[in-house]
Simulated assay, not measured.
Amino acid sequence: MKKYPQNLSFSGNLELLKKTKISIVGTRKPSKYTRQFTQLLASTLSKHNICIVSGGAMGVDAVAHAGAGSSNTISVLPCGIDIKYPAVNKNLLSDIERDGLLLSQFEDGFKSRPWSFVTRNELVVALGEVLVVCEAELGSGSMRSVEFALEMGKEIFVLPQRLGESSATNELLNSNRAKAIYDIDKFVSRFSTELVPHVKKDDFLEYCKTNPTYEDALKKYPSKIFEAELNGEIIIMNAKVIVK
């Protein structure tokens, strides 16, 4: 950082600061695909003792914190540490305060301002070994985080997205300023001191991730569909199969 904070307020477990940390940011309105793989990325990192840092906002931030689990995540706030903002994430932030760590550069009672989000974003980026931008559009707040990462000389990673979506992450790839995470286990192994086991993929669950119709899934895997539903691995919604 060009200028380090003179004071930091905290509530929670300061031991998390000693861990290897990955910063995850992104849009407040992520697609279903982004939610699914942000959750998978954060949970896989957390399972290998890597702490997730994010900003406590709606969307990608909240999914990343939840995926990591409240005991292995750090949330940097754009307001006083006594204010749970945004209100929709009040329970999530309370869980992180109890089990994980909340950080703030602002005094108690300070309400967020447009500039305080930028200040918050800089600290989120500074705390991580690298920055992962899961989904973002050009001109968004996530791109300010990207600028901070470039200034700090930190590597930037993104989730691969479809053409016409997530314009910022696609542009970062196109300009060679970021790398895509095509294999989560391989990405995690870069930062984990533990061996990331190779888990053989379950063809049935991989098929279900394509959200087939219930009728098609029943025809293809008649003996597995009921068992998976009973075990809570999948749910049926609007005649579609969804992996939980």
Rank of each mutant, 00 (worst) to 15 (best):
A178E: 09
A178C: 06
K179I: 01
K179C: 04
K179M: 04
A180T: 07
A180H: 09
A180R: 10
I181F: 06
I181D: 02
I181T: 07
I181P: 05
I181G: 07
I181N: 04
D183I: 11
I184N: 03
D185L: 10
D185E: 12
D185R: 06
K186R: 09
K186I: 06
K186S: 14
F187D: 01
F187L: 00
V188T: 02
S189G: 05
S189A: 06
S189K: 00
R190I: 14
R190K: 15
R190L: 15
R190Q: 15
F191R: 00
F191N: 00
S192A: 06
S192N: 03
S192T: 07
S192L: 05
E194D: 14
E194R: 04
L195E: 13
L195F: 09
L195N: 11
V196W: 02
V196L: 08
V196I: 15
V196S: 03
P197R: 00
P197T: 02
H198P: 08
H198E: 15
H198Q: 15
V199W: 08
K200I: 11
K200Q: 11
K200T: 10
K200N: 06
K200W: 09
K200D: 09
K201M: 10
K201T: 08
K201Q: 10
D202I: 05
D202C: 08
D202E: 03
D203W: 04
D203H: 06
D203I: 13
D203N: 11
F204W: 13
F204Q: 02
F204N: 03
L205C: 05
L205W: 01
L205Q: 01
E206W: 08
E206R: 06
Y207V: 02
Y207C: 00
Y207P: 00
Y207R: 01
C208G: 02
C208R: 04
C208I: 11
K209T: 13
K209G: 04
K209Q: 13
K209I: 12
K209W: 14
T210F: 13
T210K: 13
N211Q: 14
N211V: 13
P212N: 04
P212T: 05
P212L: 02
T213R: 10
T213P: 15
T213A: 14
Y214G: 04
Y214A: 05
Y214P: 07
Y214W: 14
